[in-house]
Amino acid sequence: MNVLFDNWDTYWEGFLGTLKLTGVSAALALVLGVLVAACRVSPVAPMRMFGAVWVNVLRNTPLTLLFFAVVLGLPRFGIVLPFFVFAVLALGCYTSAFICEAVRAGINTVPTGQGEAARSLGMTFGQTLGLIVLPQAFRSVIPPIGSTLIALAKNSAIAGSFSVVELLGTYRTLSELGFNIVWTFVWIAVGYLIITLSISAVFAYLEKHWEVAR
């Protein structure tokens, strides 16, 4: 218990760092993921190609490598941003590939006739997707997106190695100060559990709430 209370500020700062990284990256990943999923089901071949390349490159690259690419690569093109923004870009883009595939699986659960009916009424591709297909896909993508965001919360620990303040990184400070390493990690784990279990709870609620929406 002492480890926690003696270092409350360090833990709290790390906890907030992880929370912020997860929240902002999740927002980016959700927006990008839905847009890329739209590309992947688009009637325009170059857009489908772009979507496929996006997903396959990001999904098949180790996240740490992606961090190096962003943190070391972007400055070479004159793009110098705070480490937090670099971390959000790496995490958000990486996770968007998984969100995209979850959304695409959801789109595939909606009968094709729904889209055909929308198109036959003169709706554009965007209207068909936004008004008819995605709302019906929404419920079935809640569970996989929940899992993906939990993975994102845990993946955010990598940012600690790239000068971003986050929860896992606090162990370095604490071990230097000579605190018990086991308890240091126990409290870090508790911090992650609070975040990941909260995500689970939110998604369980969403799933229940949208259960009857048809």
């Binding site: 009968p111 055909e116 009916a117 929308a118 048809r214």
Partner: peptide
């Protein structure tokens, strides 16, 4: 094409009413 489809009604075998 969307504008043109707006002028052509279509009724399907499986109705395809928007379920939501």
């Amino acid at each position: 094409l969307a504008r043109l489809r707006a002028e052509v009604g279509m009724v399907f075998q499986s109705f395809n009413l928007f379920a939501h």
